[in-house]
């Protein structure tokens, strides 16, 4: 059984991705999906278990928000920090960045893609631009999933 980890803090996006993965189940090898909603919880999951693929959001809080936790700092490049940790811990899991933004900080997504490609060549595969109102991201994600979850 293949394992996918989705690190994402937007509940709508999580639901959309979950439902899409459900739809395309038959086109892929059997897999399980785990969801984490912050930098720390995502990182801990990555360090604890082996995943076949990470679906990675870029900006999120340090901790999962709850009644007892404000979430801590909002980290604009939390996803990139997770890629750094993968590199640093010599974890070779492949990662797809799934983001809704085409401008993060003062960098365009194209600039960032080039940088990630160069800097995290071991892990980073591609970026999928997610838009709730469009379905293009589904095709892009599917073709990547077919490659890595088959």
């Amino acid at each position: 059984m293949k394992k996918i980890l989705l690190i994402e803090d937007d509940q709508n996006k999580i639901m959309e991705i979950e439902s899409f993965l459900n739809q395309i189940k038959s086109e892929l090898a059997p897999f399980t999906l785990e969801v984490k909603k912050s930098y720390q919880s995502g990182l801990q999951a990555v360090l604890k278990s082996n995943f076949d693929l990470l679906l990675l959001d870029m900006s999120m809080h340090n901790f999962e928000k709850s009644l007892h936790e404000t979430g801590g700092e909002f980290m604009k490049f939390a996803g990139e920090d997770i890629l750094k940790e993968l590199q640093w811990n010599e974890i070779t899991t492949k990662a797809v960045v799934v983001t809704q933004y085409d401008l993060i900080g003062d960098k365009t997504l194209t600039e960032l893609k080039n940088y990630w490609k160069q800097e995290f060549s071991e892990n980073y595969i591609e970026t999928v631009f997610y838009s709730a109102s469009e379905s293009k991201w589904k095709n892009e994600l599917l073709s990547l999933l077919k490659k890595y979850i088959s």
Partner: peptide, 24 residues
């Protein structure tokens, strides 16, 4: 305009989190 779209997307994430907090 790209900044407006980004703000709408961020707002969506934030308001969903905030509604969760309020529900709590």
């Amino acid at each position: 305009f790209q900044e407006i779209y980004n703000n709408i997307i961020s707002c969506k994430t934030n308001i969903n989190n905030e509604v969760d907090t309020i529900a709590n």
